[in-house]
């Protein structure tokens, strides 16, 4: 395989309601399709991790996946202003 650079997408994967009781199974299926799973949030039914861009689209076809959200350039950043800002 050529050593072309393949970019990686940070993803938040929403598990469908009907698979909430099998989060570990869904996570394993994701790993088998190239997802590096960072965290499984059991109370929320959300799995976060990263995946090569080329393999991302296929994830939505997996059973038990409701949504695959990706932010260009990395995860959404949430911010609050510096402590001395007038409006917080």
């Amino acid at each position: 395989m050529a050593a072309a650079h393949i970019s990686t997408a940070h993803v938040s994967i929403t598990v469908a309601d009907d698979h909430l009781d099998d989060l570990d199974g869904v996570a394993q299926a994701l790993r088998e399709r190239g997802v590096h799973v960072d965290e499984v949030f059991g109370a929320l039914g959300i799995i976060v991790g990263s995946v090569p861009e080329t393999r991302r689209a296929a994830l939505t076809q997996l059973p038990g996946i409701a949504a695959v959200d990706v932010q260009p350039g990395g995860p959404t950043r949430f911010t609050v202003p510096p402590p001395d800002a007038p409006v917080q």
Partner: peptide, 23 residues
């Protein structure tokens, strides 16, 4: 704590905090 001392955080931080609070 989902936002750093400099005042920013990622989705993952926040989802982790939400998961902790809901659980």
């Amino acid at each position: 704590k989902v936002l750093s001392d400099s005042g920013s955080g990622t989705d993952t931080n926040i989802l982790a905090g939400l998961n902790w609070a809901v659980a």
